[in-house]
Design a protein around this nucleic acid. Structure first.
Lengths: 159, 159
DNA sequence: ATTACTGCAAAGCATTTGCAAATGC
DNA sequence: GCATTTGCAAATGCTTTGCAGTAAT
């Protein structure tokens, strides 16, 4: 329960010191509470260099002095995402989506947050730039996937 | 069990007539069998205009003359993906991945099929082009996600 | 005849949720 | 003190799997 910040690596402490006030503001605006558990989760997030999965984080916090339950970790991560402090880079939608590729050239998708509609678009330039980035990194591309999230014209304009 | 093709809409029948032989070739190379169930699933895939989820497809085939079990639908979809006839546009990886956004500007990812490593890259041009595509579609972007799948330099070069 | 595939139902597994106890305000 | 959170464990829901029967080669 202590959340003793003196034990944190320097750069982690720095990030936490900057990010925590932002989360506090967000929570206040939402009229939600500032709790120990939320601070512990936020701190643990910044302990990770980059990518992590919710479940690993939950496992790390499942024991020890800074114990936070699995459910709370998931709930807090959702809040942090809403606050813009964390980004989902690979999600598990309720289920997998497919499309057939036959007579259906590569294209990308915009997905409406509100109605869930998929809008297809394609851009040769983008495809080329991705290929370029790959060769710059010595990465052999098999396929790529672009998803843009936001609000579609209908949902934005209408009712 | 009949798979009576005379009842299929014209353009569906056409796609199936072209795609099925490709799947047959793929299965032969793999020394797998050409089965009724596999043809039914393939046909059903082409009945869908574009996006569909595995579970819906399974539901559609769970009764009626062209009955195929849920397990088989999932197994066949995996084969069709391997054959390149279908593309996953939104997947359920084992679990969700996150990253913090604080002091960590927007960037994209290359994900190695073999070692699972995430390689970060960013390209201002791509971001601009996506924004442009969005405004062309009247889509209000909240965020986007690019994932490139393939083989990383280490896995390609080494052992 | 073999051997792979299918169907079924049960198991897996990350994530979510209900509820009583705890904590922040 | 009152309302939100938390922890726990049970539920959820998509997907996978084991196994016995069935179909393809």
């Amino acid at each position: 329960m202590s959340m003793d910040e003196r034990q944190l690596p320097e750069e982690v402490r720095e990030s936490v010191e900057q990010a925590w006030p932002l989360f506090v503001d967000f929570l206040k605006k939402k009229e939600a509470r500032i709790t120990q558990a939320r601070k512990i989760v936020l701190t643990q997030v910044f302990m990770r260099h980059d990518h992590f999965c919710a479940d690993d984080l939950a496992a790390e916090l499942s024991s020890g002095p800074n114990h936070v339950s699995r459910g709370t970790v998931y709930r807090t991560l959702a809040l942090m995402e809403e606050a813009g402090l964390v980004r989902v880079i690979r999600d598990t939608d309720v289920h997998a989506h497919y499309e057939h590729t036959f007579n259906h050239p590569q294209h990308e998708h915009m997905i409406c947050d509100q109605c869930g509609q998929f809008i297809e678009f394609s851009d040769e330039q983008i495809v080329k730039l991705i290929a370029k980035a790959c060769s710059a990194h010595g990465f052999r591309e098999r396929t790529h996937r672009i998803a843009v999230f936001g609000i579609c014209r209908t949902c934005a304009g209408g009712a």
